[in-house]
Write a protein that binds this DNA or RNA. Sequence first.
DNA 1: TTTTGTCTATCAACCGATAGATAGATGTTG
DNA 2: CAACATCTATCTATCGGTTGATAGACAAAA
Lengths: 190, 190
Amino acid sequence: MAKTNAEKTIDKIVKAAEQRMRAGGFHGFSFREIAADVGIKSASVHHHFPTKEDLAVAAVRAYVEREIAVLGDPNDPKRKPSQLVASYIDLFRSALRDDHAMCLCGLLASEAATLPPRVTAEVQKFFERNLEWTTAVLKRANPDMRAKDVRAKALMMTATLEGALLGSQCQSKLDLFDNVARELKASLSL
Amino acid sequence: MAKTNAEKTIDKIVKAAEQRMRAGGFHGFSFREIAADVGIKSASVHHHFPTKEDLAVAAVRAYVEREIAVLGDPNDPKRKPSQLVASYIDLFRSALRDDHAMCLCGLLASEAATLPPRVTAEVQKFFERNLEWTTAVLKRANPDMRAKDVRAKALMMTATLEGALLGSQCQSKLDLFDNVARELKASLSL
DNA sequence: TTTTGTCTATCAACCGATAGATAGATGTTG
DNA sequence: CAACATCTATCTATCGGTTGATAGACAAAA
């Protein structure tokens, strides 16, 4: 089923909002900038997303859905846990290498205190979904480990990657990220 | 030597700017908000800090100097490396517990792409100074390790703590941070 | 004909920044 | 010491520009 013109416009708006937010956060972009990116007027953006909160929520949802889809099933027997971890790391790495940008939800999480409530809620979902996925993978890799310890390892994995993204993009050095990723892999003993 | 009234005002402005930025980033605060926090008018803030960039630079500098001063000498023979690491972790933890806020430089690093150049430069210095300190500590703890590996471990330590701050403050759960911190300590084998 | 997506035009509020007045502190000179 | 001059920190008032958001016209599509 082909997309209607309206759906194409909406996709373009959401994509532009994601990119702008990944560069400057929720307070760092405007409807007029988004409109210019897409090639329409700001009133037309408001027609699809009445408020800035609506637009940000849509952008975060799309981002999270895309991420979860790329990661796939953590219990897929055709993929080894070590491969899944590697693909998880590579997902974060690609944000830096391909988009030269932060993880959208990492950036928004840091602004959480000043975000509209529904945006904060969507960002929280990102971390919950990540924790489910990473916990499932690490549970497969460490079947004998206590659930609490698996969870702690899973938390650390995401935290380390988000933090590595922070530091690396500030200094725009991909090798910083790679050093951290290598060390992380080692500490997970996979 | 006592502080003049002007110095007191400047301190209040810088402190307010730090707090506002730690909540909403560079694009998330205004001169009028700062002025209201301090109890003066926005024109008076401009008198001390002509541009927003100037104010942000001053806030970051003060933040970094304070952090380095709290950490102290990484080679102080009276403090064991494990104690120094514990105090480093606690520094990040206190941001969450006492201020209910992000690390200023962690937040600004994520906005780096849209920051005025001198602000980005100060934030980079934060990470450089942190890397010097953590490398010195971990070198003491692992005298036989190759310098490159020590550096990687040091990078991971800061990255993990910044990332833990991100996730924890978004969900406003201190125990998330503590779980990550415990796991980090374990992986450093101290 | 109704619905939909876009437009133009506009709003009040807020933004960073500047100009100029004023009062008080500080310093200089007779 | 007294008188004058300068400097400093604040104020009020305002600038041009931007912000998120709304109203209403219009054309195309269903």
